[in-house]
Amino acid sequence: MALLEIEKLDVFYGKAQSLHGVDLNVEAGKIVGIIGPNGAGKSTLLDTVLGLTTRKGSVRFDGRDLAKIAPAKVVSLGIGYAPERGNLFPFMGVRENLLVGAYNARDKIDENLRMVFDLFPVLEARQSQETHTQSGGERQMVSLGRALMTSPKLLLVDEPTIGLAPKVCLDIAAALKKLNEKMGLTIVITEQNVNFAMSLAQEIHLLETGRIRLSGTPDELMKETHIKETYFGA
């Protein structure tokens, strides 16, 4: 049984349909990449798993139907979410931002803080720095750290490399790989940066105009003409 099972998912913003019959299974212990252009529905898909949108269809996590479960409860079941551009609390320090994420795992605050600081040592040195004064890369690290403070079994990461320098992207990739390989964390990552997603994920799904167009391993997708032409200009 997959850790996350999404079946026939339709999502609406008013009358506009954003996702059309999306089916997706995420096996435990894997990194799954969702790639696609702007407006494809990638962020909507992650928001929907968390229960932040109006939907039809089924989303099951760890065998449990997430319909009618509030976002706060979904997080407490073991889904951590690092939204696009971080959505940090700008006038709070790094530590305070991380601690806001710790409400559902209060018994593991010290342990999780240590894990986040080991993963991103720069944050430990800047614990009191307000996040609006930080660089984009540091903010992304705080966002990931805040999601990790919830002690998740599944980590949803929305476009972590957006607007970041290549070196910082590598640091983020290394951290995500470490979380997956050493701690067995299951990760779903959405990306427009196809190279980044291909280098990281074991399974890739191409989402376009709210529909899953292609699925497979990075190697399989690299052979697809549509991917080559649209995302690599070949």
Partner: peptide, 24 residues
């Protein structure tokens, strides 16, 4: 207290507070 911090966080970004598992 942490409740006070969470209330401030709501002022800054309520959706982000929800996504961290807090019942706003």
């Amino acid at each position: 207290t942490r409740i006070g911090t969470a209330l401030s966080a709501i002022r800054m970004d309520e959706d982000a507070v929800k996504s961290t598992g807090l019942n706003t």
